[in-house]
Amino acid sequence: MSTRLRRTATVATDDGAVLHVTVDGPDDAPVTPVLAHGWTLSQAAWDAVAELPAARVADGRLRLVRYDQRGHGRSTWSGAAVPIDRLGADLGAVLDALAPSGPVGLGGHSMGGTTVMCPAAARPELVGDPVRGVALVPTSAGGLQPAPRTRAGRLRQRLTPGALASALAGGRVAEALRRRLPPEHPRRAAVVRDQLHGPDATDETVRAGAELVHATTVRAFTAFLPALGAHDVHGGLDPLTRVPVEVLVGDGDRLTPVRHSRRLAALLPGAHLQVVPRTGHVLPDERPALVATSVARLLTEAAVPRVAA
């Protein structure tokens, strides 16, 4: 039986956050996928996908890197605001510390997908070498909070930051309410199934998703929401046209509907778009084999030596 080489690491960011990272496989593996998770989740959201290439990890053909985004899982806060490009800088710090030389494949789910897109705009020199491919798994490059069309809508948008601050200040009340609706509560499961999953999701999958969301702090809920609404990196995606891109989305995704992935595919003409039937937002849990196959396809191409132009 093969033995998996696993270690944990920490990566300090330039503004004081400390990111918790799990590394599977040897440092001299020929290719490294780096996976970024979504809002209100943790690196555990990738567990089902990460188990599938275990043989390649164990025999040294693959090194797998997963990390908790700041304010999620075991990673800390910096005390600063959290625009999405800050998360992109965090990903850059992880690459610099743990995958300084290629080849690398990036995978991002939901907010992790927007995180993955940020280095393309801020550090385009990373795309091509070491980053050789990108998987965008139910995500969006922006437009999650459309411009309000009515006076009432504009008023609500102006009030949102204050409302979020109030929600954060009342965190103890919110935490008490969450304790009354633990992950196993039927009402909590019903909400999670409705918002995150497709009709074929098993009760076990829904329960696992509910547990991840339940473990997220109220601060993570409230602090990241305005950043996600304001984020738009559509104009900075051109560097991704230099590498293979996989775009996946569930046909029943409520959080980042199919139109967001179709727009990504339109902006990245060489991208491979898959609209997965009877699935929702959490494809890494609902269809781990499909996601792992897409990532593996990128890694196969990533491992091919690049020819200098």
Score class of each variant (00 low, 15 high):
residue 158 R to C: 08
residue 18 V to N: 11
residue 39 W to K: 02
residue 285 D to S: 14
residue 213 V to Q: 04
residue 243 V to W: 06
residue 159 L to R: 12
residue 247 V to W: 05
residue 265 A to S: 11
residue 302 A to H: 00
residue 8 T to I: 12
residue 67 Y to N: 05
residue 202 T to W: 00
residue 216 T to Y: 08
residue 301 E to C: 09
residue 218 V to T: 14
residue 128 G to V: 03
residue 264 L to G: 05
residue 14 D to Y: 01
residue 180 R to Q: 08
residue 104 V to L: 00
residue 110 S to W: 11
residue 93 A to Y: 09
residue 306 R to D: 06
residue 242 R to W: 01
residue 191 V to F: 10
residue 246 E to A: 15
residue 241 T to K: 05
residue 276 V to E: 01
residue 137 V to P: 06
residue 138 P to T: 12
residue 101 S to V: 15
residue 51 E to C: 12
residue 20 H to E: 13
residue 239 P to C: 04
residue 205 T to P: 07
residue 236 G to F: 01
residue 280 G to P: 12
residue 84 I to N: 10
residue 234 H to S: 09
residue 15 D to S: 01
residue 41 L to I: 07
residue 138 P to G: 13
residue 1 M to T: 08
residue 202 T to G: 15
residue 269 P to R: 02
residue 5 L to W: 09
residue 303 A to N: 01
residue 117 M to Y: 12
residue 271 A to I: 09
residue 141 A to C: 12
residue 187 R to Q: 14
residue 59 D to K: 14
residue 153 G to Q: 01
residue 119 P to D: 03
residue 48 A to S: 08
residue 151 R to W: 02
residue 304 V to Q: 12
residue 166 S to Q: 15
residue 150 T to N: 08
residue 174 A to H: 11
residue 136 L to P: 07
residue 52 L to N: 01
residue 202 T to I: 07
residue 13 T to N: 11
residue 150 T to L: 02
residue 100 P to K: 09
residue 149 R to V: 06
residue 266 A to K: 10
residue 194 D to R: 15
residue 273 L to F: 05
residue 83 P to S: 09
residue 32 T to C: 09
residue 255 L to E: 04
residue 270 G to W: 04
residue 17 A to F: 01
residue 99 A to W: 09
residue 165 A to D: 02
residue 142 G to Y: 06
residue 81 A to F: 00
residue 52 L to H: 07
residue 211 E to H: 10
residue 17 A to W: 00
residue 203 D to M: 09
residue 289 A to K: 12
residue 288 P to D: 07
residue 134 V to G: 06
residue 1 M to W: 13
residue 127 V to Y: 00
residue 183 P to Q: 04
residue 167 A to L: 14
residue 167 A to R: 10
residue 225 L to C: 10
residue 38 G to S: 07
residue 260 H to T: 07
residue 38 G to L: 11
residue 163 A to R: 15
residue 26 P to D: 15
residue 306 R to Q: 05
residue 79 G to S: 02
residue 228 L to Q: 03
residue 114 T to P: 05
